[in-house]
Amino acid sequence: MCRTFVTADGVALRAAVWRPEGAPRGTVCVFQGRAEFIEKYAEVAADLVGRGFAVATFDFRGQGGSQRLLANPLKGHVDSFDDYRRDAEAFMRQVALTETPGPYYALGHSMSAPVLVALALRQPQWFERLVLVAPLIGLPLARAEFFARGLATGLGRLGFAGAYIPRGGDRIMALRPFERNPVTRDPERYGRSVALIAQEPGLALGSPTIGWVHAAFRAMTATALPGVPESFRTPTLVISAGADRIVDPRASERFAARIRGGGHIRLDGAEHEILMERDPVRELFWAAFDAFVPGSRTLA
């Protein structure tokens, strides 16, 4: 199921493709969030295949089964989100556009949102529609964001870009007890992700580096600059989690309102990982997806 492809700057990435029985209605390209990996999206892929779509996804550089960038493989690091965009471009050219049929739709979670916005502005012909789930557009506390942004910038300039963020380390956040996790209220799906990492520890990631945080802030700023959302032409549905503690759902709503052809849905009570949430939340998500993406065949 998995295969390897190489980016223009020589980074080896892991990809996977699923196909439905019969002729696909198109392809949904799934773009993951920070510290995620292909196996975590098996249920999402099955949901999409059941709707008649082919599915293609990959692990971004520095995480999952793709090439790690630092000597310590647990450090979540990237110098710039432009590198993630290059990953996405290589994935589209070498995997999705060559191995799966169009039309193409993008489903992106969290960290992937600024990547997809930059990609769709450069290659507007690739995607018919975008669905952004709990997008990384802003952080919940403006004061904390201001402090963190300044700290990351200052430490990065001092040469600490490859160091863990303050109070960060090798501890794998995805292995926290369910009661202390900030991403889902579904114990079964959370346990499934924990089991995947326990089975294959090489998929895990620790805290982000100072450089990663600095890159994330730059990407959020670039995505929300005056004229950027307004110039966006790809129809986009933004779905935010009402109980999100990782990103700011209000920032998502403001961003969606600035896109011509953009829409926003807020799922109250949902935590950050909407696609890994309880069944009632996921049913609302899939109802919105089915209404927005042409050709989606609602599951019986």
Rank of each mutant, 00 (worst) to 15 (best):
I165K: 09
F217Y: 15
D290M: 04
L267N: 05
A144F: 12
G162H: 14
V95S: 00
V95R: 00
R25H: 14
E277Y: 11
R245T: 11
V11K: 06
L158T: 04
P101H: 04
P166M: 09
S110M: 03
E200C: 12
D290V: 11
P20A: 12
N72T: 05
Q94L: 13
A88H: 05
P294K: 09
L119H: 02
V247Q: 01
E273Q: 13
F58A: 00
F255C: 08
M92I: 11
L97V: 02
P135R: 05
V281F: 08
V293F: 03
E21Y: 10
R254A: 15
A88V: 08
D268L: 14
S80L: 07
A161M: 11
A195N: 12
N72C: 11
G108E: 01
P24Y: 08
R176M: 12
L139G: 03
A222C: 04
V117A: 09
I239S: 01
L132D: 05
A198K: 15
V95N: 00
N181E: 12
V183W: 07
D47M: 11
P208D: 03
G76I: 07
G138T: 06
L74D: 06
Y105W: 03
L203E: 04
W126T: 00
G26M: 05
D9W: 08
S66I: 05
L175V: 06
R192A: 14
L196S: 09
A120L: 03
L267Q: 06
R282P: 08
R14A: 13
R245Y: 02
F127H: 01
G64I: 11
I265H: 12
L70K: 11
A161S: 15
I137F: 12
E188L: 13
E39S: 12
A71R: 13
V238A: 01
F217P: 08
T98N: 04
V117P: 02
G64K: 12
G262R: 08
A142E: 13
A256N: 11
P177L: 11
S296N: 06
P124L: 07
L116S: 01
I265C: 09
A204V: 05
V28W: 02
E188M: 08
Q67H: 09
L225Q: 14
E21G: 15
P280S: 10
Y164F: 14
L284A: 15
T57N: 02
P135K: 06
H214S: 14
R233C: 08
R51C: 05
F127L: 02
Q63D: 03
F292N: 09
M111I: 01
L151D: 06
I265P: 00
F81D: 02
G150A: 14
A35E: 10
L205R: 04
R218T: 09
A8Y: 04
M276R: 13
I239F: 02
Y164D: 04
F58W: 09
T184L: 09
S296T: 09
E43H: 15
S112L: 02
Y104M: 00
L48V: 06
T100W: 00
T98Q: 14
P101L: 04
P229H: 06
L130I: 05
A300T: 13
L275V: 13
Q67I: 07
L196D: 09
R86Q: 11
A142T: 10
